[in-house]
Design a protein around this nucleic acid. Structure first.
Length: 655
RNA sequence: GCCGAAGUAGCUCAGCUGGUAGAGCAGCUGAUUCGUAAUCAGCAGGUCACGGGUUCGAGUCCCGUCUUCGGCUCCA
């Protein structure tokens, strides 16, 4: 499986993009709150111009939780400027100017842009350069419209609210930078973000929601619950799993191994590094080299003198990393460079190739929780969600074309089974297909196979009634793929897993099976990783559960809290502790002399799933008092019953 | 990688315009033996991210580096 995160565009964006297409003639319908936000963006521009008349504006649309306007301005806007910008905005809102729509000819629009009058309060010495560019990109048969509120005129398709006074409540939130038209070759603009709602109540609710979301942030909870850590000496993007986090990993692997064993997968193991030849053969080098850690190279005095590859050049220390390790020219020569593996598929292909295969062996399902290393750009690292070392719930299924549909469907059903187990209700599968115009460039040049495999995938999706959206031009170079997007309880979105069809790379590796008719055929390969990577999946689970893991996943499943620390009571507590440990329950015993309230508070803070409070009363009755995180005191119950209940809940992975 | 911001004890944070580094929690020690979210006291804990510079004097000002955060870009 290649991708930890293949594409992070939201399904909402896809839907929005799809909705924009018919808008060539009309305009996409905007909800009321979107019109409010779009209008607030104009008011923001109005305010900025009052303060900095030379500001040049690019685009200012409503977005999911608010709006932004991109502006080019020598003055660097900082949050300290927000107060005065907001004050100007309030003046404009108070003035309650109508939003007037004016339709103009292309020539008129261009004239206004040249006079600096677009996204402006009036004529200016400099042309409205971004607006000029936008006009030039409007198709000739489309109407060009302007919107005016007070002195401010902007090139805009609309729609807006009736008057500036209809903007109920707003606030500027942050300032960031963005490339014009999202292209890093274009100038960077300052992007001012804000949000707006119908009224102040809704605005306040939004900020309350943000506060709640912050509490669930996996980075915050990961620290508080001692799940994982990062260390500068170890390196950026390289998470260290503390015992509590590792416990979750162990449970997920156990789940995956059970599930995959039952589904006929076989487990394999491969090294973390491979010789350069492997990636030359797979086609990952040189195109993928930037996303791989620089190669390790044997010192010259340790190289066998006769077998150096033709293209061999010792890397220069400190040289630009792209040039520091150009791939050797010929894959047939033995390289002395080794790469940390960024994906497991080439290794797995080699495992397939190691043994001759008959059609009777297929489907062959090779599974491994493989560890990969990817040199993600520094600005892209993000907690556990985007890291440089990752362990993937990977497997490659080699099958015949006839087997493809049932195999692919089985993979999808596995996803659904996991979703159910974790209570993931909101998900969408993004089905990425090729663009015929880019065959042989971005996509393997085999139109027939593309159409065939895409048709097969589409068929499986449709027949199984899975919620999916189709996205052209985003397939992997070797085949169509499905990215699985999920939303955590707080609405944060993740691309959690991918599922890809590969009809090209097995051939590059010369993978074959002997078919019924005694001819050699190349198998199809399905890459799949329903649980994605440990890093991202656990990051997701932390936010999904807000750290309140179900018993089977809880880092600390049970904590025993004796009331006091006198010897007989501790002895009783210890016997319960030992019984649980004997059943591999992650139990702890708080034998401190703290007050019971303090012990409970400590256990609750660590979100320990089940707390067993034990006093003399319980000891005499052979009982324990059960307290469950989030549920409070459940009262005293017989010891054996409680332990049996705990074991049952763990064994069945009760949610 | 790009733009901007931030980095003070294990954690959360205070430290005004430069004048010897502080609190709470956690930790350790002792007391407390308490029936469901924090008992009391004492102790210990810091190269103020790192490296340079300005200054009589730098957590504070300047430069560089690293890391993190907010975005953008990227994501086989």
């Amino acid at each position: 499986m290649h991708n930890q995160e293949t594409n992070e565009k939201s399904a909402a964006e896809d839907i929005a993009a799809a909705a924009e297409k018919p808008a060539a003639h009309g305009h996409p319908p905007m909800t009321e709150v979107e019109r409010i936000r779009h209008s607030a963006a104009h008011v923001l521009a109005t305010a900025i111009l009052r303060l900095w008349p030379e500001a040049q504006f690019a685009a200012g649309p409503p977005v999911e939780n608010g709006f932004y306007y991109d502006v080019e301005l020598p003055h660097r806007i900082s949050p300290e400027d927000f107060e005065k910008i907001e004050a100007e905005m309030k003046k404009e809102i108070k003035a309650n100017h109508p939003f007037a729509r004016i339709e103009v000819s292309r020539a008129e629009a261009l004239a206004l842009a040249h006079a600096g009058e677009l996204a402006a309060l009036g004529p200016r010495p400099a042309a409205s350069k971004f607006k000029l560019d936008i006009i030039e990109n409007i198709s000739p048969n489309e109407t060009i419209s302007l919107y005016r509120n007070g002195d401010f005129t902007d090139l805009c398709a609309g729609p807006h609210v009736m008057r500036t006074g209809n903007i109920g409540a707003f606030r500027l939130t942050n300032v960031a930078s963005a490339y014009y038209k999202g292209d890093e070759k274009n100038p960077q603009l300052q992007r001012i973000y804000g949000t707006a709602f119908k009224n102040k109540t809704q605005l306040d609710e939004y900020f309350t929601m943000l506060e709640e979301a912050k509490k669930r942030d996996h980075r915050k909870l990961g620290k508080e619950l001692q799940l994982f850590t990062f260390d500068d000496d170890v390196g950026p993007g390289l998470p260290l799993w503390l015992p509590r986090g590792a416990a979750i990993i162990e449970e997920l692997e156990k789940l995956a191994k059970e599930t995959e064993f039952a589904a006929g997968y076989q487990r394999v193991r491969t090294p973390h590094i491979a010789r350069e030849n492997l990636y030359l053969k797979s086609g990952h080098l040189p195109y993928y080299a930037d996303s791989m850690f620089p190669p390790m190279e044997l010192a010259e005095d340790r190289l066998p003198s006769l077998s150096r590859p033709a293209g061999f050049q010792p890397a220069e220390a400190g040289a630009d990393r792209q040039d520091a390790h150009p791939p050797s020219q010929a894959g047939s020569l033995t390289s002395h460079r080794y790469y940390l593996k960024a994906m497991n598929c080439p290794h797995h292909h080699k495992l397939y190739a190691a043994v001759p295969h008959s059609y009777r062996d297929l489907p062959l399902r090779l599974a491994e929780y493989g560890t990969n290393y990817r040199y993600e750009q520094s600005g892209e690292l993000f907690g556990l969600m985007r890291v440089r070392s990752l362990q993937m719930n990977d497997a490659h299924i080699y099958c015949t074309e006839e087997q493809f549909e049932s195999e692919f469907n089985a993979v999808n059903q596995m996803y659904l089974k996991y979703f159910k187990l974790f209570g993931i209700e909101r998900y969408v599968m993004r089905f990425s297909t090729h663009d015929p115009a880019k065959l042989g460039e971005k996509f393997v040049d085999n139109s027939e196979l593309w159409l065939k495999t895409e048709g097969m995938v589409r068929g499986v999706l449709q027949r199984s009634g899975i919620n999916y959206v189709e996205v052209p031009n985003e397939a992997a170079f070797y085949g169509p793929k499905i990215d699985v997007q999920v939303w955590s309880a707080i609405g944060r979105e993740f691309t959690i897993a991918t599922n890809q069809v590969d009809f090209a790379v097995p051939a590059r590796f010369g993978l074959v099976y002997k078919d019924r008719d005694n001819t050699e055929k190349t198998p199809l390969c399905i890459h799949r990783a329903p649980l994605g990577t440990h890093e991202r999946f656990i990051g997701f689970l932390i936010e999904h559960y807000a750290g309140n893991f179900p018993l089977w996943l809880a880092p600390e499943q049970v904590r025993i809290l004796p009331l006091g620390d006198d010897a007989p009571l501790l002895e009783y507590a210890r016997s319960i502790y030992q019984e649980l440990r004997a059943h591999e329950v992650r139990a702890e015993l708080d034998a401190s002399s703290d007050h019971i309230k303090a012990k409970i508070a400590a256990a609750e803070q660590m979100k320990v799933h089940t707390m067993l409070v034990i006093g003399n009363r319980d000891m005499e009755a052979g009982a324990v008092s059960v307290r469950v995180h989030g549920q409070g005191n459940l009262g005293a119950k017989p010891r054996a019953e409680v332990i049996a209940g705990i074991l049952e809940a763990i064994a069945t992975r009760k949610s």
